[in-house]
Computed example of a mutant assay.
Amino acid sequence: MPNTNGILGRKVGMTRVYNEMGRSISVTVIEAGPCKVLQKKTVGKEGYNAIQVGFLEKKESRLNKPEAGHFKRSGGTGYYHVREFRVTEPEVYEIGQDITLAEVVKIGDQVDITGKTKGRGFQGVMKRHGFGGGKASHGSGFQRAPGSIGCSAYPGRVVKGKKLPGHMGTDKKTVKNLTVVDVREDENILLVQGAVPGAKNGLVSIYTKA
């Protein structure tokens, strides 16, 4: 059976391990899978080939009626996270089938990992955009303000995309070409070299190279 090009996981945290050369490297620990196949999508019906998978089981009492009906086809168990992964041959998968970590990645693979960055709330231009700010001495009244944002007589308005204070974080971000350092099949644990977007317990999507 061909592998999917990805699997869902939960960021556990970061630590350090030693490689075969005795060098300490920082790694991100991810609990990845198993994921349940909930639905198959084909070019003939939906216009593209993909499988829908669920990750982290949810109690039946927490499901609403539409969710319960959808999950019933794959065995009745609900899931907190539902995502799609493109596949070339959706017909080889079965509804209710489990996709495990060992089927998707192995040690030494290069993977792309997508997550949601940490939320920082409402922030000013210095933290949000890296502005330098004004003088902090000699009676200056301009320290952390954005400064003038107008354009005089023409065009007489604030241009779109102007860097201003606002909500920071919770953005979708992908880090590419991370090396898989270790795969612990019995614990569904994946170790990748480097940092991964998001806070602890945040959902991440792990994509393998086609």
Rank of each mutant, 00 (worst) to 15 (best):
N3I: 12
N3P: 04
N5C: 10
V12R: 07
M14R: 07
T15R: 05
M21W: 11
V29R: 05
E31H: 15
K36F: 05
K36H: 07
L38K: 00
Q39L: 11
V43K: 15
G44V: 10
E46L: 10
G47P: 08
Y48A: 00
V53I: 14
G54C: 07
S61M: 08
R62C: 09
N64S: 09
K65T: 13
R73L: 06
S74D: 06
S74N: 02
T77W: 00
Y80D: 03
V82N: 02
E84W: 02
T88Y: 14
E91D: 14
V92C: 06
Y93D: 00
E94C: 11
D98T: 10
Q110K: 15
Q110R: 13
D112E: 11
G115Y: 08
T117S: 09
G124A: 09
K127Y: 14
H129R: 03
G132D: 11
S137N: 12
H138C: 02
S140L: 08
F142A: 14
G150M: 08
G150H: 08
P155K: 09
V159Q: 13
K162D: 04
K163W: 05
L164V: 12
M168G: 01
M168I: 07
T170Q: 13
K172Y: 11
V175H: 01
L178D: 00
L178Q: 01
V181P: 05
R184N: 14
E187S: 13
N188L: 02
L190V: 03
G194I: 07
A195C: 06
P197L: 04
K200G: 11
N201P: 05
V204H: 00
S205T: 12
S205N: 03
Y207N: 14
Y207F: 15
T208M: 04
